[in-house]
């Protein structure tokens, strides 16, 4: 792999003089910027990833202590083998068995996001955890109390010491540790990636290559770059009435934003069903049927989904759909989905 190593390869010192957690990272942790990705958005130099910061962030991500009754952790809705999305759940399943109104997004390649959540309500990765912690349908905890619980714990102060040099647990340190864990969740080793980087393991079949060409013609205007999103907010015709969830409009209040949602990445798409902000579709076949013949009209429907003759959607034959799906399946990154550094 000829990837640029942005940060020095950091190796955890195993069995050093200072007291360490048993579950210390014993493998290398580094944020690797893949050759085929644009430069990251997140300011890594302001919060450099260290093995200790990563270990702390990971511990927090998997710890239900952040929820009101210590019943639910981030990882309950963001599961490693599903690219940190929530398999089989159309909408999120939170505290007290309550259901939210949106599908849990994958947590991968977060340092390239310009905004977070389906409506882009949060601009910076460091501010993301406050939202699920506070959300009454997710973890329902006051972040100030969550921090108090960490301060009283028998091991968190020493983990903060290892990561930041003193035992003090501040909002910034807490959030930066979580970002350090999430920043390392880079998925860029799918078969497609090996293909575009001309590495070994990059064999694509003629069907998959035909699918890639069709994808470029029909999908890439929104699912752009090798991150497969242009980070914009668009209405892809999922509904004609968005009163249940107005999308981007819920944070911007602008009428032109009703029904617009952030274009999602399609990486590991095979592993992140169900699809769309409301988890409406459980298969890629039904997603393509939607684009071909299910697009619904509304005032903010994206112009790219209105054909010159006034018909809605993206014309596709059955054969073309099969090829596009074959291509989408080459975006599965088994290395990432099975990475033991990230799993519990």
């Amino acid at each position: 792999m000829k990837n640029l190593i942005l940060l020095l390869l950091l190796l955890a010192v195993v069995g050093g003089a200072c007291q360490k957690e048993k579950d210390d990272v014993k493998t290398a942790i580094a944020v690797v910027i893949p050759d085929n990705f644009p430069p990251p958005i997140y300011e890594l130099s302001a919060n450099p990833v260290t093995p200790e910061g990563f270990a702390l962030g990971k511990k927090l991500f998997y710890d239900p202590i952040l929820s009101r009754d210590s019943s639910i952790s981030c990882a309950d809705c963001h599961i490693s083998y599903a690219a940190f999305s929530h398999p089989d759940h159309s909408t999120s399943h939170g505290i007290d068995n309550q259901f939210g109104k949106r599908n849990a997004q994958a947590v991968q390649n977060m340092i390239w996001n310009t905004t977070f959540f389906w409506d882009g309500g949060v601009p910076n990765l460091d501010l993301v955890p406050l939202n699920p912690i506070q959300n009454p349908l997710e973890m329902d905890e006051n972040p100030a109390i969550a921090l108090q619980k960490l301060r009283r714990s028998s091991f968190y102060p020493s983990m903060f010491y290892n990561a930041f040099g003193t035992e003090e647990i501040t909002t910034a340190r807490f959030l930066q540790a979580m970002s350090q864990f999430m920043a390392t969740l880079v998925s860029a080793n799918s078969r497609y990636d090996h293909f575009v980087r001309k590495e070994s393991g990059g064999m694509m079949s003629t069907e998959e290559l035909a699918g890639l060409e069709l994808f470029k013609q029909k999908c890439q205007s929104c699912h752009a770059t090798d991150l497969f999103t242009d980070n914009s907010f668009r209405n892809n015709g999922i509904n004609s009435d968005f009163s249940f969830d107005k999308g981007r409009n819920e944070v911007s209040t602008l009428p032109e934003d009703i029904g617009k949602f952030r274009v999602p990445s399609l990486r590991n798409i095979e592993a992140t069903a169900p699809y769309m902000h409301n988890g409406k579709f459980s298969t890629l076949e039904s997603v393509l049927d939607h684009y071909a013949s299910g697009v619904k009209q509304s005032a903010t429907l994206d112009p790219l989904l209105i054909q010159p003759d006034g018909n809605l959607g993206i014309p596709m034959t059955a054969d073309e759909k099969i090829k596009i799906i074959a291509f989408l399946n080459t975006l599965t990154d088994e290395d990432f989905l099975r990475d033991t550094r990230f799993a519990e």
């Binding site: 939202n131 506070q134 969550a146 807490f174």
Partner: peptide, 12 residues
Amino acid sequence: PAAGASGMYWSW
């Protein structure tokens, strides 16, 4: 947001 501005910050 988790101290002085607790309750006066929109996390979403």
